[in-house]
Design a protein around this nucleic acid. Structure first.
Lengths: 150, 150
DNA sequence: TTAGATGCAAATAGTTTGCATTTGT
DNA sequence: ACAAATGCAAACTATTTGCATCTAA
């Protein structure tokens, strides 16, 4: 399987000394086709749709590897058993989660560049990415009556 | 059960219109005794140690409620089935997770006050808390050989 | 008094494992 | 060639559910 064009993420995989397998590349495809937010169940379904011969275990193993490589990050959008995996395009991701309706609002700028530098200097760590989540009410829920409305 | 002293978190529970039950207060005690980071399994064990008559389901129901109230936030420290619940003392929490050894380093200042305000103004949302996670290598792992050493 | 919360135990669902086989490099 | 990764299916584990009972307000 010698592709000519290798996506940046696949490249990151290869650079880290891991094999560029069909299963991993398919999971990557599923993630990239999902708009950046997918639950493990959705990923499983999408991978199966792309290639039904790929086993569940390989999907979980790939997600685990991608997490260690900061390609992806598991997080809880809606409290539930299944985590939502978010892609970390440039090592970071930011969003607002509505605690009422579970809607996710993404935003780009976080202004954390200088904080990153400060922490690296002060703590001696090497930072490769970050996830910033805000919680609250979206514009709709903010104005809605305080009733429970999942 | 009419306590004279009610912790700030218990107060938040009551204010939100929920009952101050023995099960909920015990889960809160477990969380507060755990130093701010506990997996669901550890919470379950601690609650059982405090009062073995409390059922598992009530613990999960309490954690779910606390999450909706931003008293606590589930997150993945180490990729695993069980989430780690972090207390959000003043509605926010920040830490660095070492992707090599899973160590957690907390830090206080995040300087996100003005970003919060900006987002509220720009998006019309009402924000009540946030979680900021950095990923990378801690000082030890940074200097260690690049071998797998989980 | 009574809506809301609980405990139980069974049902679900998500994830991991061990191992023989296959594959990327 | 061979270490690394896979697919399978069974084993596990964590979480949720339904419901009769209890309890905080």
């Amino acid at each position: 399987m010698s592709e000519d064009h290798i996506s940046p993420r696949a490249q990151r995989l290869r650079d880290s000394g891991h094999k560029l397998t069909h299963a991993r590349l398919t999971v990557l495809d599923a993630l990239e086709g999902g708009g950046g937010h997918m639950t493990s169940t959705e990923i499983l379904e999408q991978v199966e749709a792309l290639d039904a011969t790929i086993g569940r275990a390989s999907v979980f193993r790939a997600l685990d590897l991608f997490t260690r490589l900061s390609i992806v990050r598991p997080t809880y959008i809606h409290s539930s058993v299944t985590p939502t995996y978010v892609l970390m395009p440039d090592g970071h991701h930011h969003h607002i989660i509505c605690t009422q309706c579970s809607r996710v609002i993404e935003f780009e700028d976080c202004g954390l560049g200088s904080l990153t530098q400060t922490l690296e200097d002060r703590l001696g760590v090497r930072l490769t990415g970050h996830l910033l989540e805000f919680y609250g009410l979206c514009a709709d829920c903010r104005d809605a009556p305080p009733e429970d409305q999942d």
